[in-house]
Every structure is written in structure tokens, then in C-alpha cells.
Design a protein around this nucleic acid. Sequence first.
DNA 1: GTTACCATGTAACTAGTTACATGATTGA
DNA 2: TCAATCATGTAACTAGTTACATGGTAAC
Lengths: 184, 184
Amino acid sequence: MKTYNDTTYAILGILTTDCRSGYDIKQLIDRSLTHFWKISYGQIYPTLKTIVEDELATVTISSQPSKPERKEYHLTAQGKETLKNWLEEPIKQIPAERNEILLKLFFGRHQSKENTVSTLEDYKKKLEARYLTYINIEESITANKEHAEDALYWLFTLDYGKRMTKAAIEWCTNTLEQLLNEGD
Amino acid sequence: MKTYNDTTYAILGILTTDCRSGYDIKQLIDRSLTHFWKISYGQIYPTLKTIVEDELATVTISSQPSKPERKEYHLTAQGKETLKNWLEEPIKQIPAERNEILLKLFFGRHQSKENTVSTLEDYKKKLEARYLTYINIEESITANKEHAEDALYWLFTLDYGKRMTKAAIEWCTNTLEQLLNEGD
DNA sequence: GTTACCATGTAACTAGTTACATGATTGA
DNA sequence: TCAATCATGTAACTAGTTACATGGTAAC
């Protein structure tokens, strides 16, 4: 059994919803998956091409009135099977997130305390902004009754994002406090 | 001013400690930075080469008794300046972590509940194991008095890892609970 | 003699982004 | 006519991993 990268599985998964074109896929990702999965057209279109070559999906050209032509992709039985097999595999490993702020902090002794403090404060603001966007996504999922069956799972992923962001904000607060109290 | 990728800055930062060779750098990363920054020899050696070419460090060959020859790298004034400039730059953006488990969960409606549950349980176990390794790293930093000046900052990064892991474990617990209660 | 550790390096490959190129339709 | 949105695609580049290749030293 041929294996694919996770981006391919992400696209197969999205094709189970009513997103049918490369453009639709990008829209869905930017709106709903963006907090844990980003993707560019430079990857979507070539991936869709190999998905069709491997007969995981079929493609038809649809000309809709008053809109440009677009290609619509539909999963084949084989495509659904491939997705199911991937879903049933256990997770290989916890993602190793590369974190620029931790990298800078690790070498914190080589910068002024003021600089470390302002870097952390800036980071904290960005995290707080992110937290608000999560609240917004949450509200739009809850409000949109179209995807009721999927909503539960979508909210789980959002809950993860919120919890992680909250913990990161708390870490910022705590670290800033320690830095400011130290050396008094 | 030429800019470099973060891996280059990581290596410049490590060269401020008494890690002097490619091998040493790999050791330090595997022992102390591994929870937020991994790196392979396939990147270390070529990066060291360009660091020397750009005169951010000098290299000397040292033959130590009873050990193979090794190359020792020392930061130049320019190298220290380059590192300092990077440290003083604000963070561009919060890292967008790609998360395989969230991706699978997002498509959770297309798998059995049992499967989702066991995937989450497996993930939780991995997180708990990771939490323990953080405790171990923490103890080894606290025990090792050699790096007292750096220790504070190293512990900050570890605290981040611990908080994030703890929040992720709590999310697993909560999500599992919701899944098991749902549909009763 | 063989395992573990010390030590350096490259080639091939995979993944992914960015910038570019093209063009239709709609509404202000 | 100009901006926004819909729509598809490629080429060049950057980053990074894995597998391979090599060889010294020490201890058992």
C-alpha cells in the first residue's frame, strides 16, 4: 500500500465535505483548519494531480453560469478506503514544534533583560489576539447548522487551540513576573 | 545585512557555550533543546561551513590525545554581533504547528468512535511520557552547576514545554470524556 | 573482535513557500 | 475602468531528513 504525506490525507478528508475544487479546499483550510494546518496553492494543485493519477479521486470540469470554469474532484471508493486506513493508523509521534521564541529565550543570557521582557510582552499580545480569533471561529462553527455532524469534531480541535494558547499566555505572564522580580 | 535561517542562529547561540564542534552541537541540542528544536548532522555541517565562509566563526583543527581529530569553531566579533541582532529582533509570528492528531480528529466523523478513542488514548500516553522526560531534563539542569548563568533561561523553556504538555493531556482527558458520554 | 562512542561529511530525496503567470466575472 | 473575487497552475527556491560513507579509540 502506497503511503502519502499528511497533506494528501488532509485533502482527501476535505473532499468528503462539499468542497470540490482546489480553490474550495484552500478556502476551507484558511477558514477552519488554519490553526493547525496551513497549505498553499503550490501544494494543493500538484497534490490533486497525483490524487487523480492514483485514482483516489475523479475530476470533472464544471462550467457554472456566471463564474469561471472549475475542476470538481470526487473521491473514488479507493480514495475513501485510503483515507479510512490513514484515520485508523495510530499517531506516529507528537509533533516537534520549532519555537523561535524559546530559541531566543534559551540564549537569553546574551541579551539585555529589557529586550527579553519586550520580546515576551510582544509574544503575549500575539497570543491574546490568536485567542480571540479562536473564539470567533468557535462562534461561526456553532452558528452554522449546515455541518452539524462535523461540528463536534471541529470544536474539539478548536478547544485544543484555545487550551494551548491559554497555557502559553499563562507561561508568558509567569515568566515575565520571574524576570522582573529577579535581581531586585 | 545578510539574514540567516533560525537554524543558523541556533548554532551561533550554541557556539557561545563551550560546545565547539559539530558533534558537540548535536549533543547539546539532543539533550537540552530537543523539546523545541531538533537538527540533523545533514544540516549542522553544511551550516557550519557557511558560517565560516561568512566569517561569523573561525575553525581550528584540534587533535586531542586518545580521541579522533575534531574541528573547533569560535565565534568572531561579527558572529557575536549577528547573533545579538537576531536576539533583539521581535518575533515575526507565532509558530503554526502542524498537528497530525488534530487533522485526524477534524475528520473524526468518518471513523468509528472506538478508533477515535484509542487514538486519543495512545496520544495521551505519549504526552505523559514526554512530561516525564521534561522532569528529567529539568533535574539535570538544576543539578549541573556548571551552567548556572544559563540555567534560568533554560528552565524557562522547559517550563513552557511542561505547561503545554500538561494542557494537552488535560485536553485529551476532557475530549475522551465528551466522546464517551456522547450518544449514551 | 566487536560494540559503543567520537567524529565529519555528502547525495538524494521530500516537503513546502513564494513569486509569477493567466484569465473570467461582477459590482462600484 | 478598476478592484475584488473566483479559478488554475508552474518554476525557483528554501529547509530539512535519511541513508550512506568513512574512520579513529576504548573497553570488554
